[in-house]
């Protein structure tokens, strides 16, 4: 014969109506004889009842509002995707140049503040907002979360460069996002290989 402890484990499922008929009969027989378990079961059923009484209301307009909000976010996303293809060359070349600059700084024989000043002057035409955008895609799984975060473009860009230079690895690329700009697997891999070749 089962002890009260074993019935105690069955009572939550009895209270939610999830016991098979055989176990249900066993529990009911026990409840007839055991006041302690009966009280325990009543309290569990009462909690179930409290939960079922607790209703939430969803405004009728919620579905339509959600669709509008989502489409707005996706439209922003698509607009960014359109910039992606022409942002890639700017990103790769700029990172490569910065990588060289970074190594120069660490190497006392080649480091030269004069050279750096000259370099910055020569490359001041580069559009950092584009490379920042690509860095955004590289670094974050959820592009929208980043876009709506407080990170500045420069910060995102610096993080991308930091990861490439310091960790000698490419940040994770959102393959789905790349796919949505009509890159097939081969084209995608070519871009990655090109980046590896140029940057590392």
């Amino acid at each position: 014969m089962k002890q009260c402890k074993e019935y105690e484990d069955l009572l939550p499922l009895y209270s939610s109506g999830d016991l098979d008929s055989e176990k249900q009969i066993q529990v009911e027989n026990h409840l007839r004889d055991c006041e302690t378990c009966r009280q325990y079961q009543l309290s569990l059923s009462a909690i179930m009842a409290i939960m079922k009484q607790d209703r939430i209301s969803i405004p009728d307009s919620y579905g339509a509002e959600l669709v509008v909000a989502l489409n707005r976010r996706l439209e922003k996303r698509r607009a960014r995707q359109k910039q992606l293809l022409w942002a890639i060359p700017a990103f790769t070349s700029t990172v490569a140049i910065l990588l060289i600059t970074g190594f120069s700084l660490f190497n006392p024989e080649t480091a030269s503040s004069q050279w750096l000043a000259q370099f910055n002057l020569e490359h001041s035409y580069m559009n950092f907002s584009n490379v920042g955008y690509f860095g955004e895609i590289l670094l974050e799984d959820d592009i929208d979360a980043v876009t709506e975060s407080n990170f500045s473009t420069d910060e995102i860009y610096k993080n991308a460069v930091y990861q490439i230079v310091e960790e000698q690895s490419l940040p994770e690329v959102d393959r789905y996002l790349m796919a949505t700009v009509n890159l097939n697997d081969v084209e995608f891999q070519n871009i990655i290989n090109k980046m590896k070749y140029e940057i590392l």
């Binding site: 939550p12 499922l13 309290s43």
Partner: peptide, 26 residues
């Protein structure tokens, strides 16, 4: 999933007791 549910309901009961909830009128 059933085991998690059982533990959850028992835990809720314990917390209700700590908060002094009465079930009499439920």
């Amino acid at each position: 999933a059933k085991v998690n549910f059982s533990h959850a309901l028992k835990n809720l009961r314990k917390m209700f007791e700590e908060m002094g909830v009465s079930y009499e009128t439920v």
